[in-house]
Amino acid sequence: MSEPKISLQHVYKSFNGKEVLRDLSIDISPGESLVIVGGSGTGKSVTLKHIIGLLQPDRGHVVVDNTDLCCMHAVELNAFRRRFGMAFQEGALFDSMSVFENIAFPLRRHTKMSEDEIRQRVEECLEDVHLHGVEKRRPSELSGGMRRRVGFARAISLKPEILLFDEPTTGLDPVISDVVADLIVEMDEKLNTTTVTITHDMKVAFKIADRVAMLYRGEIIEEGTPEEFQRSENSIVQQFIEGRAQGPLTEE
């Protein structure tokens, strides 16, 4: 087996004495699309933020490209993050800037591209997420689905090796959710990135995943290909897939 691109090793994290991640370990191979599913408050977002070093583990290691993020100086870590593209839950677009400026932001800061090249690259990125003619609009003038897509475009502008999606379809209607899921598959294939997505939408998860992992109470309780995952005998996993109110997930 090849070296993992991303490796979480025995990660523990607590907030105000409440343990959120408990001995979380998972390896992600280069080019793989991993989807982490789980209920609200199980530490999905926290896991994603550890991968990009927005949070540091209390114990354990986060290793990306054989580099341990925990031992990095803030300035080094800042530079290291150029390998990542992260799309946030509500897009997290800079509302003081237009759509164009949002996508051009990382290009202006981290490359020596000319204004023409930047314009061209922004157009390419918007093309990749199937958006046209929105460059001059402000984030507040966009619909939820469009904001997500602009967020995707901004995340891919520096051609990252790793793409992270934080709840890409939460709050979107089923049709737009499906469009967004298709888009993630498309971007993953086109850019050949390692992709980590967190979601609680099983339909989306099965669509975009090479491998699905379920997070429950800060631990991975099941992982496998979408087919294996669907056949899992774990009653927690089954309850989550079916979305039933009765079962071990809701019994304390």
């Binding site: 933020k49 990009i52 530079a79 993050r81 992260m86 509500e90």
Partner: peptide, 17 residues
């Protein structure tokens, strides 16, 4: 407001302190 709408995290994710 940037903090509560994750724009500060987005800045960091774009390799910008």
């Amino acid at each position: 407001t940037m903090r509560v709408t994750e724009q500060l995290d987005a800045l960091k994710a774009l390799a910008t302190d």
